[in-house]
Design a protein around this nucleic acid. Structure first.
Length: 294
DNA sequence: CTAGGATCCTGTCAGC
DNA sequence: TGCTGACAGGATCCTA
């Protein structure tokens, strides 16, 4: 679930809360969700590689966190006077981001809480319904050598059209949606932003990657940047977007999604009904008129 | 090497 | 109501 914009939003939000705070204790409620030996230390940095979040401590150790499908990070601030640079992301004493659910606002820990990390100033809950995500402790110097991190391709902002075209050609028989979901080909997109980028570029998700013209490839690359930038600007999937101003629950996708979870509704561009099909094993949303099969 | 499908896990929802 | 299968904002492993 959480894709690059969500993880970037988490990074920015957490940075404001836990920088210079000391991690005092780690409580592991689900062994599968935690790798390595729990450690203690003061937070000196928060970084991101694609969808992976890194928290660096001053003891030479780092936390590598991947939320996969249903992970959430929810920080409960112990002090009401904490100053956060990320005002809009905060609601009461809590900052929450990741897979949108009632966990953002309900009592913690709960059935889906996998790890509880106590800081001198607050508590960080790692919730994960499906247990695909994890927190891993490793030496800071080894983060970039981690098997997952090492394989990641550049993000859309770091990739030229030429480079993108070369990568598409290497996977010319794959469907374009599968290609852009592959983090070793281009990094950061997940199921939402893949659909949104393909819609913005007017490309059918089941097009063979090698069939895209250079112009189409460039449109897709620029669209990938644009849809993720827009999501980051609106705060990704955070409590602030999940809980509306009047206190009611909302769909955070309302902030930017044109096609995702909008099957049956009119295409914002031409009015044709959005359809949902299956491509590369994933639910896929598109406008059958704006994204004709090549 | 690439391409496609199964799989990890829990929970929800549509359909009988 | 209760059961069943499909599916879910990700990535890896296995097979051809």
């Amino acid at each position: 679930m959480p894709e690059l914009p969500e993880v970037e939003t988490i990074r920015r939000g957490l940075k404001g809360f836990i920088t210079s705070k000391k991690l005092l204790n780690t409580e592991i409620l689900c062994a599968k969700s935690f790798q390595g030996t729990p450690t203690t230390g003061t937070v000196v940095n928060t970084r991101r590689f694609g969808k992976a979040l890194i928290i660096d401590l001053d003891n030479g150790q780092s936390l590598l966190i991947h939320l996969r499908m249903t992970g959430q990070l929810i920080y409960d601030n112990a002090t009401t006077t904490a100053t956060s640079a990320s005002g809009p992301l905060q609601s009461g004493n809590r900052f929450a981001a990741g897979h949108p659910s009632e966990n953002f606002v309900s009592a913690l820990p709960n059935k889906q809480t996998r790890v509880i990390m106590t800081f001198d100033g607050g508590t960080l809950y790692f919730n994960d319904q499906r247990k695909f995500g994890f927190i891993k402790v490793l030496p800071t110097a080894e983060v970039e050598n981690d098997a997952f991190i090492k394989k990641l391709a550049p993000e859309p902002w770091q990739m030229s059209t030429d480079d993108f075209c070369t990568r598409l050609e290497r996977h010319k028989n794959s469907l374009i949606k599968a290609t852009i979901l592959d983090q070793t080909i281009i990094c950061g997109l997940g199921n939402i932003y893949a659909d949104e980028a393909l819609f913005a570029a007017g490309i059918h998700p089941a097009t063979r990657s090698g069939h895209l013209s250079r112009e189409e490839a460039e449109r897709l690359l620029l669209s990938a940047r644009a849809v993720m930038e827009k999501s980051i600007a609106s705060g990704g999937s955070t409590m602030a977007t999940y809980v509306k101003a009047d206190g009611t629950r909302g769909d955070y996708l309302d902030k930017f999604a044109q096609v995702f979870h909008r099957e049956g509704q009119p295409c914002p561009r031409c009015g044709t009904k959005i359809v949902k099909i299956r491509v590369a094993g994933r639910g896929t949303h598109l406008c059958p008129k704006c994204q004709e099969v090549a």
